[in-house]
Amino acid sequence: MSYKITIIAGARPNFVKIAPIIHELEQVKSEGATINYRLVHTGQHYDKNMSGSFFNQLKIPQPHVNLNCYGGSHATQTASIMVEFEKELLSNPANLVLVVGDVTSTMACAIVAQKLHTKVAHIEAGIRSDDWSMPEEINRLITDSITNYFFTTSETANKNLINNGISKDYIFFVGNTMIDSLLKHRPHFFAPPIWNKLNLIADNYMVLTLHRPANVDEENRLKFTIDSILAHSNNIPIIFPVHPRTKKVLERLEISYPKLYCIDPLSYLEFNYLVENAKAVLTDSGGITEEASIQDIPCMTLRDNTERPETITLGTNVLVGMDPIKIKPHLARLFKGQWKRGQQIPKWDGKASKRIVDVFLELQKSEDL
């Protein structure tokens, strides 16, 4: 009898994380395993770069269904996803619902699954920022409180779960599936149009990304942050793929610098080409800190906290904080050539997805799915 796994993805980073799991499931199926999956896109984030090329680049099939639950407030979107996913799961029952990361879809689909008595597995379980002002932190806490199987990226995440009363029997330290995707596709990175347009040179430009509400919704803070970066960037180009949320604020501010290049969001392979060749990355994204650390690119996180401490203790990441004044000394250290080198992060080796699917196979054998 085939076991059925419903895989949930709602935002672009989710697809990066589930792609290698899908590849591994396809591999074991080709070897005779009786596990099938159904890929559900909640539609939480619409991204034109995911409409075709994104799936081709990651070599994953188009979702079996798109619930089209985009837009609206957190409450409205959560409710919409729950209503539509309930219909989906009732029509296509599963033995296990697999959720990844910390977006609204992760939390909403975990709740629906448990209400329908379907077990839940959480990829990236146990990570914590301890900042309840972040919607993602609330999503993590709720999801982990109703998860059955916890797949973690670090020993810190393991400790967080154990401190919350989770039995070690249900915690599986497997590594980071986002790094699986990065290492698999790294040979295929290619330059975006901006590379040739500006005649960019490796190690002579920086990449900037900003999207968190605390950084971009307050116009004065966003302007001060960009001013501080440009004032201390040694006049090298700053490439800024602009999140739709940030674009609206930038248009109101009418920020203009000769060395600041605001461009549309890039495809997965193009963006990581820019990161791999950059002097440094400045970001408020958690996932980018992971990718930069593995590529040994200096990274500055423009936040007061991080749910990925291993990128700081072992990686190339530094927690700058949200006060733009603090940017100057970090950039000074960068240009003096004094940035730390990354170290090997345990189990961030490209094999996390195999470990995850191996657990699924063991659970299937014990009929515990």
Rank of each mutant, 00 (worst) to 15 (best):
G321K: 13
I226A: 01
P258I: 09
C262N: 12
E218G: 06
C299L: 01
V318F: 11
E254V: 11
I255E: 02
V281N: 00
L250Q: 00
E251M: 10
V320T: 05
P258A: 10
D304W: 08
I226C: 03
E270W: 06
N220F: 10
G287L: 12
R308C: 07
D284W: 00
R221V: 07
Y257G: 03
G286E: 13
L260R: 07
L230C: 14
T289P: 05
E310V: 10
E254H: 14
P213C: 05
I238W: 01
P298K: 02
D304F: 07
N277F: 07
E276Y: 12
I288L: 14
P241L: 13
N204R: 15
K279N: 08
R221D: 06
V242S: 02
I263M: 06
V320C: 04
V249G: 04
E218L: 10
V249P: 03
F224N: 15
G315C: 03
P237K: 12
I294V: 10
P244I: 14
T246Y: 01
A231V: 08
R308H: 12
E290M: 11
L222H: 02
V242Y: 03
E219K: 15
Y261A: 01
M322T: 15
A278E: 05
N272P: 05
P241F: 13
T283L: 00
C299V: 01
A231S: 12
V242W: 00
T313M: 08
V242M: 02
P213D: 12
D284R: 02
S285A: 13
L266V: 13
V216T: 14
D264M: 09
R303M: 08
L250F: 08
E219Q: 15
E276C: 07
D304N: 15
K259D: 13
L222Q: 03
N305R: 15
I297E: 01
I255K: 00
K259F: 07
S256V: 10
I239P: 06
I239N: 11
I229G: 04
A214Y: 11
L208T: 00
L253N: 09
V318P: 02
S228P: 04
P258W: 09
K279Q: 13
I294T: 00
L260C: 05
L266I: 12
I294R: 00
T311F: 06
T246G: 07
A278R: 04
V207R: 01
T209P: 07
L250K: 01
E218V: 10
R303F: 07
R212D: 04
H211P: 07
L208D: 00
T283W: 01
L230Q: 14
E291Q: 15
G287F: 07
K248C: 05
N277S: 06
N215Q: 03
G315H: 09
Y257A: 06
L253G: 02
T313R: 14
D217H: 14
D217N: 15
L302V: 04
R308E: 10
G287Y: 12
N204I: 08
T306C: 08
P265N: 13
N204Q: 15
M300Y: 05
L274N: 04
L210H: 08
I294A: 04
F240P: 04
H232E: 06
I239W: 08
S285L: 04
V242D: 02
Y268H: 10
